[in-house]
Simulated assay, not measured.
Amino acid sequence: MAMAMSDLPGDLLTEILSRVPLTSLRALRCTCKTWEALSKTHIFGKTDAGSTFLGFMVIDYKLCSMKLDLQGTHNNGDLVYRPSIKRLWLLEQAEICEVFHWDGLLLCVIKDERRLLMWNPYLRQLRWIQTRDKLHPSYMYGLGYENSNNNRNHKILRLLDVTKSSELGPLFEIYDFNSDSWRVLDVDHGSCVIKSGVSLKGNTYFLAEETWSEGFVVVKAKYFLLCFDFTAERFGQHLVLPFGAYVSSIKTVVLSHVRDEQLAVLHQLEDNNVMELWITSKIEPNAASWTRFLRVEMRPLSFVTESFFIDEEKKLALVSGFFKLFTSIIKRAYIIEEQRCMQSVEIGNARKPGNKLVLSSYAPSLVQLQINGRGKRKERDY
C-alpha cells in the first residue's frame, strides 16, 4: 500500500520539501496545514544555487522580484538571458527609494515617510520602524546583529551624509530590535567620508574616502574599507582595498558580497575600459585579504556599474548600471565571464532619474520580526 506524504517520518519529509524551488513555496504552503506549519520552522524551497539568481531590485521606485537562469537559453543559436521580473504588491502606493538586504531580511526605505519597513519574504512578516524625521537621501544605513548567548539581536545603523545635507542632526543613530528604540551613537570614524556599505557576518563594511590637503588644496584622496562592529558598536581600523585606490584614477568602486561569507569589490578605472572584480579570501572587522575574481574589458566604454552579483562556481558576474547615449541615460545589466563575450540581460529601463537598478541575491531566513503589520495580497509574495 502506498504511503501518504503525511505518514512519512519528519526528517524524510523535511528533506523532500527542502528540494522544492523557492518560487513554488506558496503552492507548497497551500497544500496542507502540516506543510504550512513546517515551513515556518524549516527552510524549504532552495534557490537552485549555481544555476539561478533569485533576488530583488527596485525599478521606478517599486520593489520587484527577479529570477534569472544563469545558464541562459538558446534562441536561434544565440545564448540569451531573459529574467522573470515581477512587481511585488507589498506597498501599492508607496515609492521605495532603496532596499537593503541582509540575513534574509529586506529593509525598505520609503520616500517621504517617517518609518522604515523591514520585511521577511520567507515568513511573510512585516515590521514598521518609526524614525524621528522624514526619510531622505542624506541618510545611509548599515545592517547587522549582535551575537549574545548564541542569539542574534538585529540592529540598524543610520548615518547622516553631511556632504548631501545642510540640516543639523546626529551623525549616527542605532536602532535595536529587542528594545524597539533608537538612540544616538557617539562613535569615532576619523576624518573620512563614508560612501556606501554591505552587510556581512553580522557587521557592515563601508566604502570610505579620506583626503589629504596642503592648505586649502586637496593633494590626494583614497578609498578604503571601514567595518562597523554591531556587537561592540564601533568602527574598526582602515582595511586596504586590493588595487590602487586613489580617487583620481578610479571611475567606479562598488561593494557586494558572496553569500554571507565573502566580501566582493568591483572597480573601473577612469582612463580605460578595464573592469576588475575581487573577493576576499579572509575578512574580519580589522583584517582582509583578497584574490582577483575577474578582469574584463568593458563595452560600452561609458558604462558605470551600480550593483553586481558574483557566482563563484560558474565564474561569472551579473552587473547592473547605466551608460550615456547622447543626452539619455540608458539602464542595462550584463552577464560577464572572463573567457566569453559579455551578454546583455533584458531588464528594461528605469524611467525616473536617479533610480538605481540594484541587484540583491536572496537566501531565505527564519528571523522573526515580532510582527506589527502584515502585507496585503501576500499571495503574490514568496
Rank of each mutant, 00 (worst) to 15 (best):
F235L: 00
A37E: 11
N372L: 13
I279D: 00
P137I: 07
E276T: 11
G142Q: 04
N149V: 10
R234Q: 15
V217W: 11
K195I: 11
L159N: 00
W182V: 07
T41M: 09
S360W: 05
L359I: 15
Q368F: 13
D133I: 13
V304K: 14
K222R: 12
N273I: 03
D188S: 03
V319I: 07
K376V: 10
V218S: 03
Y223F: 14
Y122L: 03
C192R: 02
K376T: 07
L106Q: 13
D381V: 11
M118R: 05
K195F: 04
K134C: 06
T211W: 15
E98A: 04
N203G: 07
V217K: 12
D69M: 05
N120I: 09
G375K: 10
F235P: 00
E92K: 09
W89S: 12
L266N: 02
P121H: 09
V296E: 09
M275N: 02
I329G: 01
V319C: 12
D188N: 11
C227S: 15
V217G: 02
S6M: 04
L366I: 02
Q343C: 14
R340I: 05
R259Q: 12
M298V: 14
E214Y: 06
Y139Q: 04
T204F: 02
Y334S: 05
S320D: 10
W212M: 11
S65K: 06
S365T: 06
T280H: 00
D78I: 10
Y205D: 01
S302A: 13
V217N: 04
L17Q: 00
K164W: 03
L226W: 10
F303I: 00
S307I: 08
S166D: 15
T280A: 03
F172S: 05
S328A: 09
T252K: 09
A350P: 07
L239S: 00
E312R: 05
D69L: 06
H42C: 14
